[in-house]
Design a protein around this nucleic acid. Sequence first.
RNA 1: GCGCCUGUAGCUCAGUCGGAUAGAGCGAAUGCCUUCUAAGCAUUAGGUCGCAGGUUCGAUUCCUGCCAGGCGCACCA
Length: 561
Amino acid sequence: MSADSAQNKVAVALLKALEIAKSNGLLNCDLPSQITLDRPKNREHGDYATSIALGLAKAANLQPRVIAEVIVKSLNENNLLTVAGISKVEIAGPGFINITLESASQGAVVSQILTEGKKYGRGKTLAGKKINLEFVSANPTGPLHLGHTRWAAVGDSLGRVLSAAGAEVSREFYINDRGNQMDLFGQSLFSASQNKEIPENGYHGEYIGDLAKQIVKENPSFSKLTGDEAMAAFRDAGYKLQLDQQRQVLDNFGTHFDTWFSERTLYENDFFTHTLAKLKSLGHVYEEEGATWLRTTDFDDDKDRVMIKSDGTFAYFASDSAYYVSKRERGFNLCIYMLGADHHGYVGRIKAIAACAGDDPNKDIEILIGQMVKIMEGGVELKLSKRAGTIITLEELVEKVGTDAARYTLIRYPTDTPMVMDVDLLKKNTNENPVYYVQYAHARICAVLRNAKELGINHGLDFYSPELLTHERERELIGLLAQYPKIVASAAELRQPHRVARYIEEVAGQYHRFYNDCRVLPLGEEKPTDLNSSRASLSLATAQVISNGLDLLGVSAPEKM
RNA sequence: GCGCCUGUAGCUCAGUCGGAUAGAGCGAAUGCCUUCUAAGCAUUAGGUCGCAGGUUCGAUUCCUGCCAGGCGCACCA
């Protein structure tokens, strides 16, 4: 956010007005360090509004309206209005102060956008944060389903948003490549390759048969193997193929990971031993009934967790612990886990791992829970069962609606809300999808600007005269564009990329309204004016903001549609 | 039983660090292209913000209790 934005100037002026009033003995209370300005819903309430007078009423022991009057008087008498580019100040209702900006002051943000280009909206609120962002982390035993897809879209977008806020982000995919599930996977493949029945609790999807065929084709010698040897051979070959497939699907989806972290590696080079020793030295490990436990109840977990089972094998929780320690020892000062709702029971124990490792579970680690995605088709819910094989995969979804629509639809809802995707609706008619509304606005602007160029109408930084943009639609649009940096910052702070999507939908709508009421290019024989140039420049800035916003979602900004 | 999430327009959902008349899209009705992309815009209809208390100048937003729905509560991974 630019420090000298119009909004900031207003906030500074208000604070100054308060300080002067206080030093003159008109107010007898502590002042806030910052003034918060709202964008009023009702345009008649100006460009910005503050309820500061209501907030101070009690402490100052004065009527809110009296305080508001004191502030306004102070603004007037100390020449603060001009400095802050304010054209009008009004007191309304119980004591709101409504502020209207000079067009020139308000319109300055367009110049800022045109100057900063792709960088407009980027900030430093998360500077210095080294974030490990873990998401998707599917088992390499099958295709990615819709739950994974939600995270693939949201996680990737969150990564972009966090980076835009100045954080250093590393995306990580944790591969669960150890344990019973992997063995079952190998067993299922082996059985399928011999046309034998797949074990009851094995994997039954259609892909298993295909995968088995492919493995046999690539490794003819495998058909001679038996027992555990065969299981392991099929397991590892299938693992490699599935992982490659997942990687490729995610790649096509525009989601890229910096690190693919194999669970197996946690047991190489004595890393788990090291983890255990560390936790032990901090006093949270004990043995009971032949098993090794981590006393997570020291930190609010429901029950203690087994790391090494009484038969000497490692429980999954052993990996969880070592994995967390690994993240921290690789230098990340914030670990974000994105988990499905069916894993929300893990929150307590994972946070407890952090606490047991001597970290602050409220600061060094965050766990985001994504609620379920339901799919409806033909009015019936499709059940998601990976093992049964009746699943909608990421690939299938993309085939049906395309990457842009799939990503956009998944990102525009907050993740703590269960989501219903109507396949019929998404298949049926794409223009019912908000992504097209936004993309259309961008394409429309590009068309206008192409025409402007043809007509020889200059636009851009040097041809922009903010004081000419006084139309209500123009002011609304400019005011909205000025909000973008705050939107990005809050999306990052709250880990909610959907805010960016909702915001650019608003920008698109505002542009469409502006377009309808304010002619950008000259009509017929009219001679081009500075107003045409300024409106074209405003259009250019709008396209920039939409494009920047779509980029944070990983969705394309087409120039033509 | 315990824990997490959710309950806002006919449908799918935003919004809320407590603020002035609760929003969008779809669906319904009616207008707007002899000139920038009508994949758009405007107007109308549609709401006890799950229910009941509490805190407050002010609650859809915060607190408590209910009701309803979803998801979890392994020496499985």
